[in-house]
């Protein structure tokens, strides 16, 4: 178990190096210099040269990458070009905001999709199953940007019930969180529901459930006591992987509602080639991906005692 986790994180570290190097090289390809971004288009050639020299950009690529890597390992993420502050000054608050958004999205999505999935999977092919399955497939087909536009048209411009942007500039306001959470839940719950349904339907056909029903145990008890535990193993993994999905899912939502989170930061950094912010965000993304995958695997093992780590 411990060995498993250590190996996973070793693997993650290797991927981090690979990804960060790829990002560095990719941004090296982009035309134009950072000095123009910092000093603006109206700076002179000489001013840019002096700035580049003063900030170590005249060093060869490998030296810069090496020193970034060394600093990164020590928790120094570098300086943002666009914001002119240390990357961690912007990264952590933004990540926290996205955590809040993600928390509420999950807090609503998980109960809804598990309930719907179990209900649908209980009687495969029944009316309820068909209705739930069709609704999930339709909601999954509406891209986030489309539902963001539709919801804004209805709730902000039409009914005037909800605030149109979610900057939280007067402190945390739950009302402002509603639209972003709605968009995320609507897009994602269908997938989890369908996975839960499939898992539930499979469990319902297993011999021991059939036996339990035939033995005359109350249906309710069969579902709650016997079926549910086994049916929820697969959705657990799926939900863990949704955390990883959320990291890119929030980009559109945060952009559309001006929510100051990780996705908006990453988008802004990518559009402005703010290299150290991009690197830091990339590392967070890789970490979250590896961590959720590992947790999913551990959880899966814990829930399903038939599997043991080799």
């Amino acid at each position: 178990m411990l060995f498993f986790v250590i190996r996973r994180f070793g693997n993650m570290a290797l991927i981090m190096v690979l990804v960060s190097l790829a990002v560095f090289l990719l941004l090296e390809l982009t035309p134009g210099s950072v000095a123009t971004k910092v000093l603006g288009p109206y700076s002179s050639e000489e001013q840019r040269r002096l700035w580049l020299e003063a900030h170590g950009y005249m060093e060869p690529l490998w030296t810069r990458y090496g020193s970034w890597l060394v600093n990164f390992v020590q928790g120094e993420f570098g300086q943002s070009i666009r914001f002119k502050v240390p990357v961690s000054d912007v990264l952590w608050p933004r990540l926290w905001n996205t955590t809040i958004l993600g928390f509420w999205t999950f807090a609503i999505m998980i109960p809804v999709s598990l309930t719907l999935g179990v209900l649908a999977g209980m009687r495969e092919g029944g009316l309820l199953d068909r209705a739930i399955s069709q609704i999930s497939v339709i909601t999954t087909s509406i891209p986030e940007f489309a539902s963001a536009v539709l919801f804004s048209s209805i709730f902000v411009f039409g009914l005037k019930w909800l605030p149109g942007t979610s900057t939280m500039s007067d402190g945390f306001d739950p009302l402002q969180l509603l639209l972003p959470v709605m968009v995320l839940v609507v897009y994602d719950f269908g997938y989890v529901t369908r996975m839960t349904r499939a898992s539930m339907a499979e469990v319902m056909t297993t011999p021991y459930i059939r036996t339990a029903v035939l033995k005359g145990l109350p249906y309710r008890r069969v579902i709650l006591r016997h079926a549910l535990r086994n049916a929820l193993i697969a959705p657990f993994t799926i939900i863990m992987l949704q955390i990883n999905w959320l990291l890119s899912g929030v980009i559109v939502v945060e952009f559309a509602f001006a929510y100051k989170g990780f996705g908006a930061l990453l988008l802004e950094a990518a559009l402005n080639q703010d290299i150290y912010v991009i690197e830091a965000c990339a590392m967070v993304a890789v970490f979250v991906a590896a961590a959720t995958q590992t947790l999913a695997d551990i959880g899966y093992t814990y829930l399903n005692p038939r599997i043991r780590f080799k």
Partner: peptide
């Protein structure tokens, strides 16, 4: 598999934004 894992561990939309905004 390692290369695939590295790419897949990256949020996919982020990958698009990064690649497209660069090239």
């Amino acid at each position: 598999s390692f290369v695939a894992n590295a790419i897949l561990s990256f949020p996919v939309l982020v990958l698009y934004v990064l690649v497209i905004s660069t090239i």
